[in-house]
């Protein structure tokens, strides 16, 4: 029973790379893993999951009421198949953070949140205090481990696999107390922040929704994702799904450029794993320069147009 079950994340059309990152964590634990895909018309997603290198079996649970990612419905399915697994891993995305603790409680165990490194099957590292401390977490030897995997800390596995797909019918009916209404998606066609190789972000200094076009234009020019500080989101300059940080998205692009972001600890937490951090801020003493690899103390409203010209 030393086997890991991975909860696949998807949007109905494609598998989220978070799934493959969880699989990498399972291999670090040193275990064989299966992947469960829950949804409606899951064939295509299951095929994508089956391509993850080293996947054992992909279990496809296809039912109308699983189409939307409601934790109440998805948790029951995972609990029903939990017996065969020592470890159950989900991503640290909002989907996994919503779902995994519900599963853990139903199984009567505490959850390990945000695994960033693995020592062995019962011994992990994770950040706490907004990334200001890293701690060792020991789960009791031989206990069932339910955990979320800090996706920014793990690289996806290759996709040359060819696992068997097994169909399973849903073991529970739809929850009667929770109903999905809709999803208003903020993001456009730009690369997803959690997987983009470059991210361009704007802060409060952008000063208006219109000015944020500068961020989008520069992002599009270099194929980057677009992000923001909480202050920019709160002010209504851009949608909430662009927020980077402790309470937004934790990201690890090769290149991160922050325009007019002061560098509050809650923001820095979200970008610590980036390859190169660039900060443009007109205040030479802004704390963001303490973590930036390359800093430029200048007005963003001059720098962005100049960058567009030089890169266009």
């Amino acid at each position: 029973m030393n086997r890991t079950l991975i909860i696949a994340e998807h949007d109905g059309t494609s598998l989220n790379p978070s799934t493959s990152k969880c699989a990498r964590c399972a291999t670090a634990i040193g275990q064989d893993f299966d992947i469960v895909v829950m949804g409606s018309s899951t064939n295509e997603i299951a095929t994508q999951a089956a391509a993850i290198d080293g996947a054992g079996t992909v279990i496809s649970v296809d039912a109308e009421h699983l189409a939307n990612p409601l934790a109440a419905n998805h948790a029951s399915e995972v609990v029903a198949m939990a017996d065969g697994y020592s470890h159950i891993l989900g991503p640290s995305t909002t989907y996994g953070r919503d779902l995994m603790p519900r599963i853990a409680a139903l199984l009567g165990v505490n959850q390990v949140s945000d695994i960033s490194a693995v020592e062995d099957g019962y011994h992990f590292k994770r950040p706490i205090y907004a990334g200001n401390a890293i701690v060792d977490v020991h789960a009791p030897e031989g206990s069932k481990v339910v955990a979320t995997v800090r996706v920014a800390s793990w690289k996806a596995l290759g996709d040359g696999g060819n696992a068997a797909v097994e169909s399973k019918s849903a073991s529970s009916a739809a929850s009667s107390h929770t109903r999905y209404v809709n999803l208003e998606s903020g993001g456009g066609e730009r690369p997803d922040l959690q997987t983009a190789t470059s991210v361009i972000s704007g802060g409060r200094a952008m000063a208006s929704k219109e000015n944020f076009d500068l961020i989008y234009e520069l992002a599009d020019l270099i194929g980057a994702g677009a992000g923001a500080s909480r202050a920019a989101v709160d002010a209504g300059y851009c949608p909430n799904d662009m927020q980077v940080g402790q309470t937004g998205k934790i990201i690890s692009p090769d290149l991160y450029i922050a325009f007019g972001i002061s560098g509050a600890i809650q923001h820095i937490t979200g970008i610590k794993d980036a390859g190169t951090i660039v900060a443009v801020n007109k205040d030479a003493d802004a704390p963001i320069f303490e973590v930036a690899d390359i800093g430029l103390a200048a007005d963003l409203f001059t720098v962005i147009p100049e960058m567009k010209q030089l890169l266009g």
Binding site: D11, L70, T93, T94, Y95, D98, S176, H177, T178, R179, Y180, V181, N182, L183, E184, S185, G186, G187, Q194, P239, N240, D241, K249
Partner: peptide
């Protein structure tokens, strides 16, 4: 209304 990675999700609960 829930803040999720993909945007704003609305659900109804009893």
């Amino acid at each position: 209304v829930r803040e999720v990675d993909a945007g704003l999700e609305t659900i109804e609960v009893d």
